[in-house]
Design a protein around this nucleic acid. Structure first.
Lengths: 102, 102
DNA sequence: TCGTTTGTTGGCTTATTTGCCAAATAGCAA
DNA sequence: TTGCTATTTGGCAAATAAGCCAACAAACGA
């Protein structure tokens, strides 16, 4: 969230392919190529999805030689839940809620 | 979730106006007209957003005379969190996860 | 350097989403 | 019925998003 905004994160999560990528990453780090192999999509299409996930900070990347490693950023999970509480939780003091959050 | 699929819910949450509607509903039920007044959008545009939220079962509706009452469906919150755990949580037994969830 | 492997970027098409206005529908009351 | 209020639906334009292919860039090994 933070700088990115809830919007970027929720939009990133709105696509089934991107959610599948995240689920795959639960099993540990994967290279872009390994991930791409798992989907009936071209590498460039996947690369676009990676970019969206990266922009939302849902994944970390690291360059290793010619390949790029993707890892899940689990800390964002907590922030997403916080965002959900902002939507479904009890109404708190108005000042306590981030007016930019929506 | 359920019949609708995670997809419908996440997509519904991906729009800032719809999230603002949900936040407004935390304060209690509102009529379509009351909600529409809060946004710089036409009633028909808001009606479209309501339809998306309703399809995702994020809100309940009730017709009262000429007006339609919207209420937050907080039970879906738990399902969304479950969906998030499916994305960020530890890898569980493969059979334990809903293969249709993504 | 040359060629190969690995990923990303640019350009394009198609599909989806968001918004508006105008018209239609539904309930209620005169 | 007629009229009034409240909301949804249909049709359309503009913006976004997702996909592909082709070209480009970066890192490595021969």
């Amino acid at each position: 969230m933070r700088l990115n905004g809830v919007d970027t994160v929720f939009r990133a999560l709105a696509d089934p392919t991107r959610r599948a990528i995240l689920r795959e990453l639960r099993g540990g780090e994967r290279t872009a190529g390994e991930l791409a192999q798992l989907f009936p999509l071209t590498k460039s299409t996947l690369s676009g999805h990676f970019a969206v996930l990266k922009a939302a900070e849902l994944v970390w990347t690291e360059k290793r030689g010619t390949q790029v490693i993707y890892r899940l950023n689990t800390t964002v999970f907590q922030e997403v839940v916080a965002g959900l509480l902002d939507l479904f939780g009890p109404v708190e003091k108005e000042a306590a809620r981030d007016p930019e959050a929506g």
